[in-house]
Amino acid sequence: MMRRWIFPILAGGLVALSAYQATLLATPYALMYAALQKIGGAGPENRFAFSQMATADNQPIVRPSPDLSYSTCVFDLSKGPVLVDVMPVPGRYWSVSIFDARTDVAAVRSDRDTQGGPARLALMKMGQKAPAGYEPVLLGYDRGLALIRILLANPSEFPVVDAIRRKSTCKQLPTAN
């Protein structure tokens, strides 16, 4: 009698395990797709969108910190490398993080890494070459997100910080014809 149930139980367990694995593999892509759709609406691809300081009514990033200024760039490498130049904000902690389409962090640079200078990153796929003066960041996917965070000690500092951060760029590397 028990033998009759072994195959259905094993088959059910295999289906459940397969569904679990599929969910684990698909979830990061689905989350990043949703984030890129939401954030991408703030501006065109391969260009930074500079948001206002986060409030209860304005949250450009999921669970934002109220003492951080955020800038986002949804990038697309399908037409070639994308150059990210982040201008330093003197006397402040700042960082730029590069996330790929799977939500993996491909690179993080901060004021401590650049020792007061700008961060200059070339987002590219294998086989492409970074221009002189740019640090290559190899990605396995065409799309992703660059996120700049700048710490403010006081909200009144925002206008000064905003003017500096708007000098940061995210742009497609011009192609030679």
Rank of each mutant, 00 (worst) to 15 (best):
S78P: 05
A35N: 09
A54L: 03
G43D: 03
Q52N: 09
A49H: 08
L25M: 15
G41A: 15
P44G: 14
D57T: 14
Y33S: 14
P66F: 04
D57F: 14
A26E: 07
R47Y: 05
T55V: 06
P66M: 05
A49C: 06
P64A: 03
G40T: 04
Q59I: 10
R92C: 01
T27E: 09
Y33C: 05
V84H: 00
Q37H: 10
P81F: 04
T27M: 12
K38R: 15
A56P: 03
P90R: 07
V82Y: 00
V86D: 03
G41V: 13
M53T: 07
V86P: 00
Y29Q: 05
V89W: 06
L25A: 14
G40L: 07
Y29S: 07
F75G: 05
V82N: 00
D57I: 11
S78L: 07
E45I: 09
K38A: 15
A26R: 10
L83H: 01
G80R: 00
S71W: 00
P81W: 01
S69K: 09
P64D: 02
R92K: 15
S65C: 04
P64N: 02
F48Y: 07
M53F: 01
I61H: 00
L68D: 03
L77Q: 03
V89A: 07
A34I: 09
A54N: 04
E45N: 14
S69M: 10
L68S: 02
N46V: 03
K79Y: 08
L83V: 03
T72D: 10
A56I: 09
A35M: 09
S78A: 11
